[in-house]
């Protein structure tokens, strides 16, 4: 089998960026599945796209804006009804540590 297009270290790096705690077996499986998909995707390299503009929207539109008008807010209780944890009128999260 050829060397996979994505290394285990890259899988770990991407999982960290995406905030996904993957188990060791998951990481290994992910590596081989991503490798298969990336190998398939490699066919795009056959196309010369140097002079092709990228399309971000299929239906081109510009200058969609709203007027600067205030609209009613969501009552605090309705907003917090979905919060997993709250304290008073705040949403509560576990302590923040920097990486």
């Amino acid at each position: 089998m050829a060397e996979p297009k994505i290394t285990l270290a890259e899988v770990e790096h991407v999982a960290r960026l995406a905030r996904l705690d993957l188990s060791e077996p998951e990481k290994k499986r992910m590596r081989f599945q991503l490798d298969a998909i990336l190998t398939y995707i490699d066919k795009l390299r056959r196309l010369d796209t140097d002079d092709v503009e990228p399309t971000s929207h299929a239906i081109p539109m510009v200058n969609v804006m709203r007027e600067d008008e205030v609209r009613p807010c969501l009552p605090t209780e309705e907003m917090l009804a979905n919060a997993p944890e709250r304290e008073g009128d705040f949403v509560r999260v576990p302590r923040i540590i920097e990486e």
């Binding site: 905030r19 996904l20 705690d21 999260v93 576990p94 302590r95 540590i97 990486e99």
Partner: peptide, 14 residues
């Protein structure tokens, strides 16, 4: 059971 935010994020999403 996430001790801190990073753990909470990672486990919640996993």
């Amino acid at each position: 059971g996430g001790k801190d935010l990073i753990q909470m994020y990672g486990r919640t999403r996993a």
